[in-house]
């Protein structure tokens, strides 16, 4: 009873809460890092150095008036933010934060579940997330959101192809779709896949930027062109859901990248006995540190780069990234068959 019901439920509660808290603090982190890049201070008023800013933001968003435009499609308008938030959260079910550990005299795994088709599950859940954006644009019954949602869905569909192709080359290396097995395969091959598959890693990162609608691919919400994009007509908590979904997706992409390419929860050089003193740091810390580096790069890129134009973005996706990903896949296959 405890093993089948209580512990998984407890894990779900912990992971969901941790995710939501880190999403709100992600917003603060982004504001602080960008402020630092732009030689200003960022939020400083709420709490020391503004660390309570997320609380103030949450309160503000919750008590704001929730407007539904008169000519909007009421039902679709309401469920669109939910559709974009839910996939971002349920992906965490298969992300391994660490291996099995002993906790209160009980063997506990530091992931909610390890299903046989974990990676495929992530990809398929992420593919449902696009509905949130399309429907938001459609239901708003307004021109700017419609343009933005068309941009967004075209962008998400095209970059999904490139990203999925890079995932296939990782699957070929690991020989498994399970997230835990992929980490273990990296341990047994003595190498993070970022070094074995640098091209796939790079394409995954670029595709990740595009799939989370982050700069320089933030066209669907380009404030300067489309006045906020698909969430132009949203306000209050419904807007907040879109906002949080974007950051939750960033964390998802970082966690997946960490698991697939940076050895997940493994410490650096996991097979070198000489460095085993590093084991006193819990495994999940390594996972969090690696993911954090990723998130930092996400923010850094946003502070630095201008934005692509729609046609340039599509050209980059279809004419550069997808051919490269396919070539990488073929080369990986040949090497795998010839050498191993």
């Amino acid at each position: 009873m405890i093993d089948t019901l209580v512990i998984p439920l407890l894990k779900i509660v912990i992971v969901l809460n941790a995710t939501l808290v880190s999403v709100t603090y992600m917003v603060l982190l982004e504001r602080k890092v960008i402020a630092w890049a732009q030689s200003r201070l960022g939020p400083m008023r709420v709490g020391p150095y503004g660390i309570l800013q997320p609380v103030a933001d949450a309160v503000k968003l919750m008590i704001k008036e929730d407007i539904t435009p008169v000519r909007a499609d009421r039902w679709v308008f309401t469920i669109a933010p939910i559709i974009s938030m839910v996939p971002a959260l349920i992906v965490y079910a298969v992300i391994p934060f660490g291996p099995e550990v002993k906790l209160f005299g009980r063997q506990v795994t530091l992931y909610i579940t390890d299903i046989n088709v974990g990676l495929l599950y992530i990809v398929s859940v992420a593919s449902v997330g696009v509905y949130g954006i399309i429907l938001a644009g459609y239901a708003s019954n307004s021109k700017y959101p419609l343009l933005a949602s068309l941009r967004a869905s075209a962008q998400l569909i095209s970059y999904e192809v490139a990203v999925t192709l890079t995932l296939v080359s990782v699957i070929m290396m690991a020989g498994s779709l399970s997230m835990v097995s992929i980490v273990r395969a990296q341990q047994s091959s003595h190498m993070w896949y970022a070094f074995v598959q640098p091209l796939a890693f790079l394409i995954f990162f670029i595709g990740g930027l595009a799939e989370t609608n982050r700069a320089p691919f933030d066209l669907p919400e380009a404030e300067q062109e489309l006045t906020g994009g698909f969430h132009t007509e949203y306000s209050g908590m419904r807007f907040a859901l879109f906002f949080l979904a974007e950051y939750a997706n960033m964390i998802v992409v970082s966690s997946v990248a960490t698991t697939l390419f940076l050895g997940g929860w493994l410490r650096p050089f996991p097979n070198v006995a000489f460095l085993s003193f590093l084991d006193f740091i819990p495994s999940w810390t390594w996972f969090l540190v690696k993911s954090f580096v990723f998130l930092y790069i996400f923010i850094w890129v946003r502070a630095t780069l201008p934005r692509y134009r729609y046609d340039q973005l599509m050209r980059l996706g279809w004419k550069v990234l997808i051919p490269l990903a396919i070539a990488n896949l073929v080369v990986t296959g040949i090497i795998k068959v010839m050498l191993l």
Binding site: I34, Q224, R302, A303, R307
Partner: peptide, 9 residues
């Protein structure tokens, strides 16, 4: 064009 940092500089 989307490069927000130059603005503040």
């Amino acid at each position: 064009i989307g490069a927000m940092t130059v603005f503040l500089y």
